[in-house]
Amino acid sequence: MNHPRPNTARDLVSRLSRGLLGERSRRPAPVPLRRLDVPSALPLSLGCDALGVSRHIGPRILEALPRVGCIFDDGEHWWWVVPSGSHQGVAWPPEARYAVGGYVPEPRQQRAGGRPGAPRLIHWPVDTMPYTHPILLYMAVCRATGSSPTWSEDWLGQQVHAR
């Protein structure tokens, strides 16, 4: 189907909203995801989500935490394993990436052989709990990124009414 070129801003907006500009208007291909490979010796009884930050601020966050679960490094991000649902009730800073189900983007960096490498485990917990406490992690990430902690009013209200 051949469409004439838009000659006004209104025509352009109309065609964009209908997806009629061809290849240029298509969304980029989705980034492939890979699930973090938490060792089977560590039970995931609370599910498995992950929080990623730039590997450049990872060490600052690590130092601020009293206890740390599994941490993975994909060459670009450090990924902390947290219980499922740890994104509820908080607004993670924009510098952080939350990965539901522990499915993280394939790293852009290539390993030997020209293939993306799996994120590698760089921190094993001192006990059998693979998780980092999500609220303590949230506070440490906020501090490392210069963000103010923000709590969802809906979530706070649910906690008050649950008592």
Rank of each mutant, 00 (worst) to 15 (best):
V126Q: 13
P39H: 02
G101E: 07
R143F: 01
G58N: 05
L51R: 07
S84L: 13
W155N: 06
V31L: 07
N7H: 15
P28C: 11
L65T: 01
V53P: 02
G146I: 00
R34H: 10
H3E: 14
G157T: 06
A64P: 04
R67I: 02
Y98A: 02
A112Q: 12
G69A: 00
A162G: 04
V160L: 10
T132W: 12
R143Q: 07
G22A: 06
G52M: 05
D74A: 04
G114C: 12
G69D: 02
G19Q: 09
R67P: 05
G75Q: 12
C48M: 06
D127L: 03
A9L: 12
P125A: 04
A112T: 15
T8I: 11
P149C: 05
H56V: 06
A29M: 09
V68D: 04
A29H: 10
A64C: 04
A64I: 01
A91H: 13
V126W: 08
W78S: 13
W80R: 12
R26Y: 13
S17N: 08
Y138S: 06
S84K: 13
S152G: 02
T8K: 11
R35M: 10
R10Q: 14
R108E: 15
V104I: 01
N2I: 13
A64M: 05
W124M: 09
L137M: 03
R18V: 09
R115Q: 14
S17Y: 07
V100C: 03
E106I: 07
I61D: 08
G113Y: 15
V38H: 04
R24W: 11
I57K: 05
F72L: 03
Q88I: 14
C70I: 02
W151D: 05
R55E: 10
R18M: 11
H133I: 10
G101V: 06
D73K: 11
C142F: 06
L46C: 07
R24S: 13
S45W: 08
A140R: 00
P32E: 10
S84Y: 13
P39K: 08
G75S: 11
H123G: 00
L16V: 15
S148A: 09
Q159V: 00
Q158A: 09
V81Y: 15
P66N: 01
S40R: 09
D127A: 06
P130E: 09
D127F: 02
V90C: 08
P149M: 06
G19N: 10
P39Q: 03
G47H: 00
T8Y: 12
P116F: 09
